[in-house]
């Protein structure tokens, strides 16, 4: 029963990983950029929500509604002011610039908020610890269930958006072939900026839920980036549902690892990630470079 419980908790944790991972996967799919500041943007959003909650006492969900457009604007700005130029300079430069941005965000957060760990859990009342019980030893936290549901809705919504809307189709066209997209009238710069805004908004949702289910601190971003990246690679990049599956696999591996040994949580997650990556390399697959359009 304990093991079954760990698996269930792992699945739910996977929902959180999918939330922080889908923006990373999305941005890579469209712009071929791995944004090394992705996790830090999520933490930034969590701090913004926290600051609003602290000052006004409003619900974090409401505060997130205020923060989301701000984060979207930030994503847009990041694309236009930084990534656009980086992309023109070659494949390695975006890694360098986003890594630099990550350092700037982390240290600005530290400067502004100090080293204390924060949490949004006190602001959501009972939701933070209420649970449904299934049998004697299995409990499903209401928050964990909510996060999983939000992840499913977000991934499904993103997929629907890509398939059914004009902007979604333009994004896919640019992802496949930006030059030709321009020739059929798509303004690829604007599409890129919109995609970056969407990606940053999704990780803002993820960061806010991190704040509700646990604690966060200015330097917590890189760890979230690594989890997100692991979920994406395990699930196979470009597929929205693959990202959820990857997040779930990562969550299960970590929870089972924790059951085996106290330090097993992170080790098992990293090990599964490296094993999947290793298997993919051995199989000669092109890993991350799989076509984005295939699954969208």
């Amino acid at each position: 029963m304990i093991w079954l419980n760990q698996v269930i908790q792992g699945v739910l944790l996977g929902g959180y990983y999918a939330l922080i991972a889908c923006g990373l996967s999305f941005m890579f799919g469209v712009m071929r950029v791995i944004n090394l500041a992705h996790g830090d943007l999520g933490i930034l959003a969590a701090f913004l929500v926290w600051a609003i909650v602290e000052h006004s006492g409003m619900s974090p969900f409401l505060a997130l509604a205020i923060v989301l457009p701000l984060m979207g604007a930030l994503g847009w700005l990041m694309q236009r002011a930084m990534l656009e130029r980086s992309l023109r300079a070659g494949v390695l430069v975006p890694l360098l610039t986003t890594f630099g941005l990550a350092i700037v965000i982390q240290n600005l957060l530290f400067e502004q908020f100090g080293a204390d760990t924060r949490s949004l859990a006190p602001a959501i009342g009972d939701l933070a610890f209420d649970s449904w019980s299934l049998g004697s030893q299995i409990y499903i936290g209401k928050l964990a269930g909510l996060i999983f549901a939000v992840a499913v809705v977000l991934l499904g919504g993103l997929q629907l958006f890509l398939a059914r809307t004009g902007l979604g189709r333009a994004i896919r066209a640019v992802a496949e072939d930006p030059d030709t997209a321009e020739l059929v009238g798509v303004d690829s710069r604007t599409v890129y900026a919109a995609a970056a805004a969407i990606a940053v908004m999704t990780v803002a949702v993820g960061g806010t839920f991190l704040g509700m289910r646990a604690t966060f601190a200015p330097y917590a971003g890189p760890a979230q980036l690594i989890f997100a990246f692991e979920a994406v690679v395990i699930g196979g990049i470009g597929s929205m549902w693959g990202t959820l599956a990857g997040g779930v696999a990562l969550g299960i591996a970590q929870n089972l690892g924790a059951q085996i040994a106290p330090n097993g949580f992170l080790i098992a997650g990293h090990a599964v990630f490296l094993a999947v990556l290793g298997a993919r390399v051995a199989a000669g697959e092109r890993g991350l470079r799989a076509l984005f359009g295939r699954a969208a």
Binding site: F28, V33, I34, L36, V91, L92, L95, L225, I226, F229, V233, L274, L277, V281, R286, G287, L288, R289
Partner: peptide
């Protein structure tokens, strides 16, 4: 591993 995959790997 390639590019970002190598970086984060």
């Amino acid at each position: 591993l390639r590019g970002g995959e190598f970086a984060i790997g």
